[in-house]
Amino acid sequence: MTVFSDYLPATLVLVIVAIMVDLVIGDPRSLPHPVVVIGRAISVLETRWNQGSDKQRRRSGVMLTATIVLATFASAWLVLRLLSALHPWLGIVAEVWLLATTLAIKGLADAGRAIAVPLAKGDLPAARQALSMIVGRDTQGLDEAGITRGAVETVAENTVDGITAPLFFALIGGAPLALAYKAVNTLDSMVGYRNQRYADFGYASAKLDDTANWVPARLTALCLWLAGLMMSVPRAYDLHWKGALRGTWRDAPRHPSPNAGWPEAMVARLLGVQLGGTNYYEGVASCRATLGKPLEPLRVAHIDATIRLMHGGWMLFMLLSAVLMVALSLFPPRFL
């Protein structure tokens, strides 16, 4: 009981400090990043194991997923234990740094602004180039609405992958579990495709990623709605929060991803715009369902509004988590 009540506040403090570190320095390229190491390991094993029949590939994919996720968790746990044994502060500093590497608050906001700034100046080529750095779709020839849609969709979707989901797992299991989540996310981004090469080999990775993001995606949509409600009170933004919950519930399942549709649909509803539709990848059209209603045309101001919603969403996510964790530490359930 005592261990449980002591663990929750300590973890909460470490996560808050990690958020502050990410907001200040982001992801400096001069420092080693765990996700880079994870990605290299996936690449090496994929080359060796993605062979044979469809059945063999699917079995090898399960082995890849288990190996990478468990190895990531075990490595982080072991490093933290060793450093803590040398000195408690070494363990604390290392855990804060590892937690910070799982977050992309500053990076996501900066990426959005890198698109919005040239777009606001009418520099479409520079805005398209900035967008091409964070999306896989073709950006040549996109107008202001197309560039804005790409930026808004990316910021909305990655609010889960890059912020709230890592926070969710960090609050449950500290840096080891947060890094294990990032391993799942990296696996999905590298091998979780429905093409000839990865349909079977990446099946387990894709399904585990869907499972890991199921709760965070829906909690994030709720927190985005609450953020939209709070932003609308002083009328700083004319957000369409009334009916956004019902609209998101109806729109989100239409997205190809079982999770990405929730933050995207909520942002679309709050902004009063329509997301989704047709994208082009190497000249090939890819059509998907639309989200939201086009109450107003997409324009550069919607990128800034989405970034503010992102910040409001993760802050409320942390606030609600803090209240829950403090309550659990003061009144721990008997079965814990």
Score class of each variant (00 low, 15 high):
Arg197Asp: 12
Arg128Ile: 12
Thr159Ala: 14
Ala74Gln: 05
Glu144Lys: 00
Ile115Phe: 02
Ile163Thr: 13
Asn158Ser: 11
Gly150His: 06
Gly150Ala: 09
Val191Leu: 14
Cys223Asp: 04
Asn213Ile: 12
Phe73Arg: 11
Met318Cys: 15
Ala212Tyr: 11
Leu309Phe: 07
Ala289Met: 00
Gly162Ser: 13
Val17Asp: 02
Ser84His: 14
Ala217Gly: 09
Leu83Thr: 03
Ala76Phe: 12
Ala41Arg: 09
Asn279Cys: 06
Ala178His: 01
Phe331Glu: 00
Pro125His: 07
Leu131Pro: 10
Val21Trp: 09
Arg29Tyr: 02
Tyr181Cys: 09
Arg288Cys: 06
Met266Gly: 05
Ile307Gly: 02
Ile68Thr: 10
Ala268Ile: 13
Ile134Glu: 00
Gln56Trp: 04
Leu309Met: 07
Val135Gln: 01
Phe335His: 11
Leu179Trp: 05
Met315Lys: 14
Leu291Val: 10
Ala212Asp: 03
Phe317Ile: 10
Ala116Glu: 10
Ile105Gln: 05
Leu171Asn: 12
Ala305Met: 15
Ile42Met: 05
Val21Arg: 12
Leu124Lys: 05
Gly52Ala: 14
Thr290Val: 14
Gly192Thr: 15
Ala66Leu: 15
Leu86Phe: 15
Pro333Thr: 11
Ala130Gly: 02
Ala212Trp: 14
Ala76Glu: 05
Arg29Cys: 00
Leu8Lys: 09
Ala145Phe: 04
Ile307Lys: 03
Ala126Lys: 08
Leu124Val: 09
Trp262His: 07
Val273Cys: 08
Ala94Ser: 01
Ala252Asn: 02
Ala212Pro: 04
Ala265Leu: 03
Ser189Pro: 04
Ile16Asp: 00
Leu229Lys: 12
Phe201His: 04
Arg137Val: 03
Tyr7Asp: 08
Leu171His: 01
Thr65Asp: 11
His87Gly: 09
His302Met: 00
Tyr181Trp: 06
Asp238Cys: 08
Gly136Glu: 02
Leu80Glu: 05
Gly91Lys: 14
Tyr237Phe: 15
